[in-house]
Design a protein around this nucleic acid. Structure first.
Lengths: 209, 209
DNA sequence: TAGATTGTTAATCGATTAACAATC
DNA sequence: TAGATTGTTAATCGATTAACAATC
């Protein structure tokens, strides 16, 4: 365990910076200043330097940053210098879309299995994985060394499949169900509630007039 | 324009509270304390009361809150006492999943059109809307009084379709593409970068050991 | 009344911003 | 050297928490 806590907002921004740098490399840009990164992603340059300072010194005073070097550091910091095995529980619309989403693969997240209990869905092919029944959860997690569970079941089933995922040994859970999950402290949990996002929009449209 | 700014985290929590209260109503619960809400959604009771205090007094000292009354207030605050028309640009995996996602409908968000430029996708039925070509964007936005644009195109096309949405008159944009969008101040923008979420997980798995 | 719980104020905590010395 | 830009410290801003008077 490292010494001090990194703000979650910082981690999210590092992910955004890394994608921006990747784009720059593609465009053949070799070096860049914190001010240019800042303008590229819509934050302040002090913010960029502060975020990086949590992890080390990656630039040269008076000069700036080498794009490829900084990119490499960010990928390492984010844990993206390796691949991660994931499992999706729930093969409905959202689960199926995520199983086929290329954005995950390109960043090293590999969907090893997709499970569901609906007989209609079991056996369906999603890319190169076949939807299987929930029974095989622990087996799949263990044999594929899966660390990340993605929950895309309805709210009513969310806690139950989460408990199973944790029992099978995943370290982190990405929850797409609109249900607040109880998990032990050592389990890393993130919630992506799509409705919350739309509701923040409707609040703001409403509130700003 | 109201007098002071509401923290975005507060708005997100209000959305979570409202869903929890809905669940309680379903279970026949009539009244509740801030402490019970807090435990139900995993925050502190002071936080619950503070969040509500931005908008008024909804409870009774010494007694608590009536579930249905508080729920009604929250729905009104969030702008969910009416319906909102939305359009999805990009009928790939994610766009299609969102078009069919029931969670939006049940909270009053109605997907009026889904557009794409790929001839393979045009004409496909997603629920009761048919995928149409991008040309009809302005027309659909105006005839359906659409205020929310949902962007699910690849990064390379994201800024272009965003500009078109804004020109057509939407007030808010929910961006699922991994691209930082430039929008005028008056436009409400939210980014949901699915990869960022997975990367925060991999960072945390990595960092905590 | 005694007990409970809200609404609100003040204290604390944490994150962002501004400023600038270090240094290429 | 002069100009530029980092890395870092201190100041500011904003959000969360703790505490308690108000009041049912």
């Amino acid at each position: 365990m490292k010494a001090y806590k990194i703000p979650e907002a910082t981690v999210m921004r590092l992910s955004v910076y890394s994608r921006y740098l990747y784009q720059l490399m593609d465009d053949g840009v070799k070096s860049i200043s914190s001010d240019e990164i800042a303008r590229g992603v819509g934050v302040s340059s002090a913010q960029v330097r502060k975020d990086l300072a949590y992890f080390g010194e990656f630039g040269t005073r008076g000069v700036g940053y080498k794009v490829d070097v900084l990119y490499g550091h960010l990928m390492k910091i984010l844990g993206l210098d390796r691949s991660w095995n994931a499992i999706i529980i729930g093969a409905g619309k959202l689960g199926s879309a995520l199983a086929l989403y290329e954005g995950f693969n390109t960043r090293g997240f590999i969907i090893r299995a997709v499970l569901d209990n609906d007989p209609e869905r079991i056996g369906t092919k999603l890319g190169n994985v076949e939807v299987e029944k929930l029974d095989v959860l622990a087996e799949r997690v263990q044999e594929n060394n899966i660390t990340i569970g993605i929950v895309t079941v309805p709210a009513s089933a969310a806690q139950e499949v989460t408990d199973k995922l944790i029992h099978a040994g995943v370290k982190a859970i990405l929850n797409f169900s609109p249900r607040v999950l109880k998990v032990p402290n050592k389990i890393i949990l993130r919630n992506v509630d799509l409705s919350v996002n739309l509701e923040v929009l409707s609040f703001n449209i409403n509130f700003s007039k």
